[in-house]
Design a protein around this nucleic acid. Structure first.
Lengths: 260, 260
DNA sequence: CGGTTCCTTGAGAGAACTCAACGTCGGTGG
DNA sequence: CCACCGACGTTGAGTTCTCTCAAGGAACCG
């Protein structure tokens, strides 16, 4: 949280906050254009649209019905997308952390089917969808990376749907967070989202999520205080979540490819 | 069902059953290469791998751990993919109907995370993944189409996960089937899969699916006898399913694009 | 220091699951 | 041709899990 604040302040006074800071980008290692040649990088940076930081939780990125002409790379913070069911309740479709791309589920449509808002203060890089697609036509590496990411997101969405019980779902969620979030100095996770968001994402009641967390605490699997969670028995969590094998994280694929 | 049989027989005596019959393909209108020029079509056909028909339900296409080097276009029948949870129960990840592509969830990995088998006698076109990707580098239209399909599948998987109750899930499932399956002469759907498959797909018990169907019958929404289902009140089903808006079907997009 | 939001816990209601039985449909073999 | 068998679908009864409603405590903000 403090980190996000600091970044906001650093970039708040620049004209093109998202564009200028590639060198300082906390997730440049996971960017689509990592390792690309200078000219590609130059084109890429010229494509980035100035985007003010989302200064506070709840700040909107786009809404249902908006034109879907951008992709958003999350630099810091956390973005959620959601649809409203007929009772007006939020149906969280995706939770996006630094390195993730918001908007990949709308490449087949002209308008957004979901609303996207910041869960915590966040920064994103916005890039016109059409220009990304055009750039990919000349750059097979980019094309394959985007394909991989789409495929990975698809596998993850399908796997998430496979969890039957509340414990399985929460366990899978925590394992996923362990893979995607950096752990703090104490080895603890700092979850950016509230219980309510987690519950809406896993289609559970917030009370159920809370109760499962409490149970995990009592059994010694985790040690949690609100959004700060120390996982003390990762293996047990993975066993619980293993009702459905999670897809291999992308970064592991990269490492394997590098080693080969 | 009879149609499938007939097709099997027709192609059973040819050497390359999947390759030769593009002209007779029941889903050529939904193929990735529809409308492409002659040379692209020729390359495409040369890429197709001979694939014997899956003659009976349960016939395997690939298994968890197998090399993931192919994409499979469903020509006829129905394919399901599933993972096994630790109790050995099938966790159905995807149900693929004619026109769908099996394997898009594994573009980011070298081995399959799921097993794929025929739900009914089926025919597929198998094409090497690497060659599809290579072809796309020279053919932006193909690239965009595959991206759209990936994106569409992703949106659908996320939407599916958003259904809270059994009635919502079954209603959404039926609406989806109405969009994807041709209706028979009487206007009735002929579901290719069993209640068990539906239940495993929607993570429900088979009894629950059965009970919901019965309830829909009593309320006059459908008129079902086993796998033959006549939808008599589509609007009501859509209202039930509309807890989460389904993504626009791809064919509607195509029509809109053609009109424009 | 209020006021708000978030998290937790409890009690009761409701939904889905499990276990069990039975009817139906298809296929097989006598 | 018919009896049998197995798989599938439906229905019922009881249990379990999750949700809803309600209250209280903890953190955050102005």
């Amino acid at each position: 949280m403090h980190l996000h604040r600091a970044q906001e302040h650093r970039t708040a006074h620049t004209v093109r906050p998202a564009t200028q800071a590639c060198d300082y980008c906390p997730v440049h290692a996971q960017c689509l254009v990592r390792g690309c040649d200078r000219s590609t990088l130059a084109v890429w940076q010229s494509m980035l649209q100035p985007t003010p930081p989302l200064r506070q939780a709840g700040a909107g990125l786009f809404e249902t019905g908006d034109n879907a002409d951008m992709l958003y790379m999350v630099r810091s913070g956390c973005i959620k997308t959601y649809a409203l069911d007929r009772d007006g309740a939020e149906c969280v479709r995706g939770l996006y952390l630094p390195g993730d791309i918001v908007g990949l589920d709308t490449l087949d449509a002209d308008v957004h089917r979901v609303t996207a808002v910041a869960v915590t203060p966040s920064q994103v890089c916005a890039v016109p969808r059409a220009r990304v697609l055009a750039l990919m036509e000349d750059n097979p590496v980019l094309m394959r990376r985007l394909m991989q990411r789409l495929s990975h997101d698809l596998a993850e969405a399908q796997a998430l749907a496979g969890n039957h019980t509340a414990e399985e779902g929460v366990a899978a969620f925590l394992v996923s967070m362990m893979q995607r979030l950096p752990t703090g100095p104490s080895g603890a996770l700092q979850l950016p989202m509230t219980r309510r968001d987690i519950a809406n994402y896993l289609r559970l009641a917030t009370e159920t999520v809370s109760r499962v967390m409490t149970r995990f605490n009592e059994r010694g699997l985790i040690s949690s205080t609100r959004q700060r969670i120390l996982v003390t028995d990762r293996a047990a969590l993975e066993r619980l979540a293993a009702a459905v094998a999670l897809p291999t994280p992308l970064y592991e694929l990269e490492q394997a490819r590098r080693a080969a």
